[in-house]
Write a protein that binds this DNA or RNA. Structure first.
Lengths: 217, 217, 217, 217
DNA sequence: TATGAATGAGAATTCATTCAT
DNA sequence: TATGAATGAATTCTCATTCAT
């Protein structure tokens, strides 16, 4: 007379389901536009359970925000650049960034939401201690390596490099819709994406080579 | 027996005040977050008057969106690059873009809002016929000129160039808050801004020179 | 073609109707027990109008509390003891108090509610500046008069006298229900009430005469 | 094969803790204002256990009400007036009452709550058979004694006497907060309390002596 | 053109209670 | 006896919109 099978692995805990549903809802609609009812519905639990687990809509939003950062951190930590020369390493780095923001629109949307709210909840959260993540340090090491090996002639400012890469990758993802309307080209299509992806790598490498990103500006 | 004085000038002003207040509110809070009450309050008129002039909150949002595009178009039309060689012209172009997005956060915010809503209202509006604006054509002409004069060795894709410039300028403005949190540097300060502004110019010129932005990618 | 008749006098403003309904509801059920829905229903207006006029349930409670104090103050001011000798004046005073608390259960209930909440809202309200009301001063004058005329042998402490009268009158009204259960007598009936009313007068006069209420205790 | 240890002593304690916590909560907040969650928290047990022991919030309220009456009955039964002459006996009686209501605010609060609800649950409870308690009978005997001995000239109505004493003592405790606000005197302080305590004794004795409390009124 | 009063539909949140273990 | 998870039914409050003038 066996008890219920242990299907814990199969059906996520309802807390997890709530968080996942919330993430989608908040990413798409923002804090104000999101509806607790609709989160409950997609998580297939009663609305009240949300309050049981998360206390308030705002708290849930913060939890979703933290989840999104958790995820990207893990992905970043798994990025392995060992064995690549500086230039290849930076290329890989750019590609990783471009792919991540294009495959994880929720992350991009949450970050946009946060910026629209002047980073209000990011500042609040003490779980998102450092927003930079491990990749920034990686970038620093690549620069050091490149300068040492002579591959990089002029040492770029790491922040400038990081922001440049972020700008080029993030904007493509965050502004797909207006770009698509503006140019009548489908920026979500594989072709356009691929073309921009490699151009961005080129732009970054050209900037490094030219010394455009030095500290002095 | 004409009784009503011709107070069109006065009447107009209340409509304008509403639009201005709405623009601020929508830019900061988005369509969902914005409150009609709060718009009425900052415009110092009754809520009803908003409905008299604009019919609905949604309409008012569209009007604000159109106003924002109206404004940038006018600014773009006033940009005079005559007498500048291609490289200087493109530099000026980049600087204009950078300055505009940093001085007109409402524009940036409205565009972010639109992207979060998959450009829903931009697609709808028939007043915002072309989103590209006059500058895109200007850019085309600069490229032609440069290629002809030999200043530009490899003809870049105009869309790629435009998107690159936009990415670098827009992201800086749209993500100021998270950047500030991430790096503990005040990205709104004049110094940091100036440094990034000239670096962006450099990046664009280096990209052009290196042929990173050709059609082929 | 006459417009609607001016029936303002007949049908109270809806704000007044809300306040009246609220007073009844809060008196009977307390702040927590009261239901905004039920207030709206008895006032025959939409629930939302309550928020339009009073902002919150709590605010409405305070308004009701203030109304109740407004009312008793007016009644007190209309009490005319001129021409009565001290003893008759004090008798009249006691009777007035007894009658008021028995005819205005809402007042008694609101005061009980406040005491259960440690006078939280009474302390908050700045409209209920002085809780003592004009009667306390009147009592002081009666005492002075009586002492001067020799009718009152030992000067009583005015606070002690006031509290004694209040105790005897208020308790009868506030505890009618438990008294009725305890003694199987209907304390709300005219007979019982009348009997207690005159006994209370006697008790107060006896206390005064005996010097039981002097300052020293 | 008895496995369960006899932990009745331990088990009991959680039931008692619930009851104690409930009593405090109900006394302070009333039936409507009380929160089951908050009772569970202060009793340091799970909310479910409350339902296990008491079935419903209402039941728990009744249990708390009964507990409060249980307690005062026990205290009353322990009051020993033997060996005191009628006047001293009545004084002691008054003092006991005054002290009890001032030291047991929960009792006072529960009674106020009941009166606000028109004694609804008092009527219901069959455990609180007689609300009068043993003291009322004691009072009757004191009167008989006093009349017989000649100490009391005019036989007072026992109910009138009881209600008079209750009024004076109970009101002081039930209305401490509003009195404190009204007169700017701390009615909870030992000094004020002591002064009122002895004045109340005086008032009662004066009333008895004067015949103010006879049946006829 | 302008407003104060009023409302319907919804939204977040609360809370007593039950379920499964 | 004990608990954490879960829920139905309210309940307060919000907000875009309309009505009457």
């Amino acid at each position: 007379m066996p008890k219920k099978p242990d299907n814990r692995a199969v059906e996520n805990s309802s807390r997890d389901r709530i968080l996942e549903a919330a993430l989608n809802e908040f990413a798409e609609k923002g804090l104000d536009g999101a509806r607790v009812d609709s989160i409950a519905e997609s998580a297939k639990i009663s609305k009240q359970l949300i309050y049981y687990h998360f206390e308030s809509k705002e708290n849930l939003y913060v939890a979703a925000l933290e989840a999104v950062f958790d995820h990207i951190r893990t992905a970043e930590r798994n990025l392995d650049l060992s064995g690549l020369d500086p230039s290849a390493g930076i290329s890989r780095f750019v590609e990783f960034t471009f792919d991540y923001v294009n495959e994880h629109r929720e992350f991009v949307q949450m970050l946009m939401n946060e910026n629209l709210q002047k980073a209000h909840y990011l500042k609040t959260s003490n779980k998102i201690s450092s927003m930079r993540g491990p990749l920034f340090d990686l970038l620093g090491r690549l620069i050091d390596q490149g300068v040492e090996s002579g591959d990089i002639k002029v040492r770029p400012d790491p922040v400038a490099l990081y922001v440049t890469i972020s700008s080029l990758c993030f904007f493509y993802s965050s502004n797909v819709h207006t770009l698509t309307v503006a140019f009548g080209i489908d920026f979500q299509s594989r072709e356009v994406r691929t073309a921009f992806r490699s151009r961005i790598v080129n732009v970054v490498l050209a900037s490094l080579a030219s010394g455009a990103l030095t500290d002095a500006g």
